[in-house]
Design a binder for these strands. Structure first.
Lengths: 205, 205, 205, 205
DNA sequence: AATGAATGAGTATTCATTCAT
DNA sequence: CATGAATGAATACTCATTCAT
């Protein structure tokens, strides 16, 4: 009776631990998080944690890897498979994605990258290759497609996908530092995207 | 040999120490920086450091205070005293300021705020009050002035000074995490500011 | 070589550590005792010591608690259960107890109380409640019983049990400060107790 | 005008410093007292303090020496020069002396001896030679005189002057540890001295 | 596989002592 | 003489990591 439950448990362990680690890192940052706490959060002994992750650093890298990739994959796939117009996509799914960012687990990872990046060059590289580069690439693809289809004109904006990512990163940072009592980041994101699209569409002739 | 072991230079010490601390924090982050290292960098004994700063935390706060305020003060004063048109100011002094940001000491402090903010709420508050709030206020004032003078039209953009700050923060973060091999942040800043101004000036009739 | 580096002996550790701490405190006093030394004496790592005692101070308190209480309990119980006459008890078990005091672990604790008391008011209170008050109370009870039984007359002496404790404390202090080459404290204790009993029994009619 | 005042000042410096040190030691004990504090209390710079006392330890020894000797000298001289009967002296000047002890500066020195004695054998020796030995000797002399004059009978008590010192030391210790809320030490001292004298005078034949 | 007792290197902080002024 | 800035050795405490059970 109890067997199958334990069986299943074993499979999930690593994920449960990285989830606990993410929560712990989110609360206290990497350096101030004790491995003990992560283990306790995961309902696991310290020894077992070390069975899955050789060091605290490896655990950290695992956290970054396992929580960001799926998110970015989803975005990219939706761009690739979508049959919306570029504008529709930007005002629809992309805006939705952008709005959810601040406050999501990924935002925590931004904090970790900012804080710990300099000490983990390989992780930075990984993050660049798998998250930033691919994310920017996807938006670039979206813009390129818009230009091809005649929706957008080709200009400085259509060549800098970072302009679309910018407000998201900014909002994430703001939320992280100042919490919710700061500025209206949602409106900021909307305004920026609207501004960009308006410009890409050019003066209505 | 030539250097006496004791040197009395009461006046200069605090600044030398905060400068050294900034450099150390910049390299390793707050938690990973050893007080010993800061002292060594400053060419000072650990004991003396503790004579001026009661704790590592206080040293950290001092660093934030002494390096950011002057910078932001300069910007604000130049806005207040400038007799340029708003556009001229944005394309001139402000753009210059924005370009210098990534790689400057302030950029390091952004990293510290992101990483350590959650553990130093009073510092975050201080930063908000003295840096962010005043900085945004100054730009707001500049935009308002532009509207009053008829240079700009009143719209969503003229009400969100953060749109101007956004690319700077974004560039800072990018440089911090990915170094120089990432994206062309200068061009990004320019494009964004140009975009905003163009929009504020409305369709050329 | 023969000793494994890790030994799991959870049960015994706290006692071993407090014993080592008592010895160390006895030798150097509280302030001058390094936690490192206590750990070494106990054949234990510093980390483990801190697993059982959160701070050096808590270790100190534990020492006081665990070495004095049993001693005083024994005395009190023997008073309560004894069926000797009061005189017999005082000249027998009590005198024995008094003689053993100087040089025993408790004597060291007196030193700690004198030296560290002012900085640990709660510990002083604890010591008063659990040791001094109860000890004096027990002797008071013994004297009261003697009066009731007609062995002793009621007088200033029968009301001040401290007169019996006095020579013990004095002897302890003397031994602590001056070692054995000072005065004959055993004889002092005997003389005092004899003197008190003689007086309590009144003039032989 | 100001010259003579400074002149005088210089002479008194060491005493002012030892007085300040006594006060500081009294409050916090030897180990916990910072040289800085002593200097501040004495209204003197740290450097000057070190001009008079080579080390903290030497300062400590100076404190012990300079505050106890005068006290004990006074007692001894009054014994030597007194023309009272031994009983009168014991019930008069000696009792007065004994009563004043707890709470006086000397009581603090007892604490210091108990706490720091083990680490300063030479100081203990000094204390024994100059204070304890001479003090006990003086009382011994007083008792011997009483026996010679036929006031007292020769017995175990007349040979153990410590019996007279005992309640004083005990009272001092008690006050030091438990403050004033403990037991009536004055009455204890009186009772003990009365008891001893009564016994020395023997049964009224 | 799982536990948590045990380890020890690493770090912030204090304070007696020195010495340039 | 007098100052107090400057030094650095000493020490309590933490926490990633190991390993007996």
């Amino acid at each position: 009776m109890s067997q199958p439950r334990f069986q299943r448990r074993k499979e999930d362990r690593p994920q449960e631990i990285t989830a606990a680690a993410l929560a712990a890192f989110a609360k206290n940052g990497y350096a101030a998080t004790r491995v003990d706490d992560v283990a306790k959060r995961a309902g696991v002994s310290k020894g077992l944690l070390y069975l899955y992750f050789k060091t605290k650093e490896e655990l950290f890298k695992s956290v970054v890897r396992s929580f960001v990739i799926p998110r970015i994959d989803t975005l990219i796939r939706s761009i690739e498979t979508s049959d919306m117009s570029s504008e529709e996509f930007l005002r629809g799914p992309f805006l939705e994605f952008a709005r959810k960012m601040p406050g999501s687990p990924i935002s925590v990872i931004v904090r970790l990258m900012v804080a710990e990046g300099p000490k983990h060059p390989d992780l930075v590289q990984f993050y660049w290759d798998n998250v930033v580069s691919r994310g920017l690439g996807a938006i670039d693809e979206l813009l390129r497609r818009g230009v091809q289809r005649g929706e957008f004109r080709q200009c400085a904006i259509s060549e800098q996908p970072a302009l679309f990512v910018m407000p998201v990163v900014f909002a994430v940072i703001f939320k992280l530092i100042f919490g919710r009592q700061s500025i209206d980041t949602e409106r900021l994101i909307e305004t920026q995207i609207d501004l960009l699209i308006t410009h890409l569409q050019g003066p209505a002739t």
